[in-house]
Design a protein around this nucleic acid. Sequence first.
DNA 1: CCGGATCCGGTTAGATACTG
DNA 2: CAGTATCTAACCGGATCCGG
Lengths: 232, 232
Amino acid sequence: MTNASYKQFCPVAMAAEVLCTRWTVVLLRELIAGSSRFNELRRGVPRMSPALLSKRLGELQDAGVVARERLAEAPEIDAYRLTQAGRDLQPVIEAIGMWGQKWVETEPSLENLDPELLMWDMRRNLDTRPVPRRRCVIEFIYPELPEAQRRWWLIVEPDRSVDLCHIDPGFDVDLYATTDLRTMTEIWMGLRSVRDAVEREALLLVGASELMRSMQTWLGLSPFARQEKLAR
Amino acid sequence: MTNASYKQFCPVAMAAEVLCTRWTVVLLRELIAGSSRFNELRRGVPRMSPALLSKRLGELQDAGVVARERLAEAPEIDAYRLTQAGRDLQPVIEAIGMWGQKWVETEPSLENLDPELLMWDMRRNLDTRPVPRRRCVIEFIYPELPEAQRRWWLIVEPDRSVDLCHIDPGFDVDLYATTDLRTMTEIWMGLRSVRDAVEREALLLVGASELMRSMQTWLGLSPFARQEKLAR
DNA sequence: CCGGATCCGGTTAGATACTG
DNA sequence: CAGTATCTAACCGGATCCGG
C-alpha cells in the first residue's frame, strides 16, 4: 500500500515520501490549478496511466492531502479536492515551478509541446479584464498540426466566463490568431512577447484591433512566466 | 541515462523530472546542509545504496545542479558541490521540509530514529554563542541503545568549531545529558522543550549549570523546528 | 579507508485493453 | 464517466566485489 520509507525523522524526508513519487507533483499542480474530477485530471496529466492516477489519488487521500467527495449537483460523480494540507502545498509547487523556469533547459522541454495542454492552460489563466463586455470569440489556428488539433476557439462570455472548444462553435470570430505551436508555447511561458512574434511573422493576427493590441495582457501567461530564465 | 520524461512543457513537470526521483531531495538536503564527499553523503543518507547515490550524483551533474571537483587539500579525493542552480534549490527544500513538519504525521516518523543522524544534525546546527569561551565537552548517553551507539561527545573548541565523537575523546566532561533517543529527537525537532523533558525526568542533566540553563539555546534545533505542527 | 561497479531478485511504472 | 486488469519493461535495494 504505502511506499518504501526513507526511514529518516527529518521533515524533508517525511514530506518527500508523500510528494516525490513519479507523477505526484505534476498531479498536485493539476489539483492546485483547479481540476477535480477523474477525467479532468486525466486531461491535465494525459500521459499518466489511469491505473497510476487512481493509485496516486488513493495515496494522497491516505496522506490527508486530498479528500474525495460527491458533487452536490451531480451525485453520481465524485470529485477529488485538496484538503487544507493540500492547499498548503501551493508554495511548494510554486517554488518547484519557479526553479524549473529559471534553471531547466528550455530546449528539451519545448520538444514536448501539446496543444490541448496549452489551450487549457490559456483558458484557465485568461485575464478577461481588457476584453470588451460582449461575447468575444478568438480562434487559434496551428496550420502545422493535424486536422483534429488545428483549430481552437476561446470564448469569453459577457459574464466573464471563458470556454474552450476544439470544434467550431459557430459564432462570429472577433480575432484570428494563426501561429505555430512552439511560438504560442514560448509566448505563454514568457520566453518571447506577442509583439516580437508578430514582428517576426511567427504570429499572424487578423480581426478586432482592440483585441490585437491587448493580447499580451488578456493572454494572462503561465504562473511562472515572470521568473527570469538563467539556464545555460 | 536520463529518466523517462513527463513530456510536458510546464516548468513544474520539467523540475520534477530532475527533483522527484527516489532519494533525490533527501540527497539535496544533505548537500545543502554542507556535505560534499561521497562517504560524507553516505553517512547523511545511510539507507541509500552507494550505487544509487553514484547514479543520482551523476544525474544531478547532468542537470547542472552539482559539480564535481578535486579538493585542494587532498587531490586524490573529490567533492560534490552545489552549483548556483543547486544553491537555488534551498527555498524548494525548505518549503518541502516546512510542509512536512506541519502536516506529516509525527508518529510513524518517530519510529525511524537514528542516533548518528541526530547527533550529526545537532553538531551541524549547534549554536556556540551561549557556550563559554573554553573547550566544552558535552556527553550524551542513551542507556537504551547498544554499546556502539550509546555514548556521544560534542566538543566545542575555543575557536568555536564543533566536533562529534562516538569514542571517548578522553577530555573532562562539562555536562552529561542522559536521555532516550526519542526524547532527544523530539526536542531537536521542536516538538518538546528541554525544560519539559527535564521536569518529566525524560532528560537528566548533570554538570556545569550554565550549560544546563542555556541548553535550549545552544542546542540550535532543526531548521524546521519553528514551524507549527498541524497534522492530526 | 575512499569511491564506486556488478549482479540479482523484488517492486514499480507504462501500454493497452476492457468493464460496470 | 470512472476506473480495473494484465503484461512487460524499467527501476530500486541489498549484497558483494574491486581498484586506488
